[in-house]
């Protein structure tokens, strides 16, 4: 695409950098609550990129589900497990190995992505925003089975989480 540097590209890179830096914050922060806050920033960056990609629906879902529900859940769990009392024990012993492995993964991924010729449209003008109605139609026709499965899955997760977390009469 030879469109030159456009405003969207600049915004994209800003968002990308914010997102990646916050992500690094998530995996390196010495305090769990900070990590959770970095996580929120990272999620917001991802949502922004969704907006740039013109899929408002997914951006909305991202903000609603991750931005509110998941983050609140995580903060609750953090409070319940009082993890702040153990700030020294956040990294495992095999840390260098983990870093090396993930750097290897990164190199392989980037190498593969760069070497691959992806099918792309001739110009960005060809990219049409996907409407909400089209998504809805698709979910309830082609993807009806996955949709039902997700429904069952959510109820299982709910049921299981309640059952496991709820106090038992033998609890002390």
């Amino acid at each position: 695409m030879e469109d030159g540097v456009t405003a969207t590209q600049v915004v994209f890179w800003i968002l990308a950098v914010v997102m990646l830096i916050s992500a690094i914050g998530v995996v390196t922060a010495g305090n769990i609550v900070y990590a959770a806050l970095f996580f929120i920033a990272s999620l917001a960056g991802v949502a922004g990129i969704y907006l740039i990609l013109t899929v408002e629906f997914i951006a909305l879902v991202q903000l609603l589900i991750y931005g509110s529900a998941v983050v609140i859940l995580i903060l609750f769990a953090l409070m319940l497990t009082r993890a702040r009392e153990r700030p020294q024990a956040l990294f495992g012993r095999s840390r260098p190995l983990g870093i090396a492995a993930s750097l290897g993964l990164l190199a392989a991924l980037i190498g593969g992505i760069v070497a691959t010729t992806w099918t792309t449209p001739e110009s960005s003008a060809a990219i049409q925003p996907v409407g909400l109605q089209a998504i809805g139609d698709a979910i309830f026709t082609i993807w009806i089975v996955p949709f039902i499965i997700v429904g069952v899955l959510l109820s299982i997760a709910l049921d299981g989480a309640i059952m496991l977390a709820s106090p038992d009469e033998d609890d002390n």
Binding site: F12, W13, A16, M19, L20, A23, I24, V26, V27, I32, A35, S42, I49, L53, I74, A77, L78, T81, A83, A89, L90, F91, G92, S94, R95, L97, G98, I99, A101, S102, L103, L105, L106, L109, I110, I113, V114, W118
Partner: peptide
């Protein structure tokens, strides 16, 4: 570019899984 950014994000996440020891993290 988007794919590369995603790959970096993915690798950062993998690094977190491999280095962190707290379940929530």
């Amino acid at each position: 570019h988007i794919l590369v950014v995603n790959a970096v994000l993915f690798a950062i996440g993998a690094m977190g899984v491999l280095t962190r020891r707290n379940a929530v993290l």
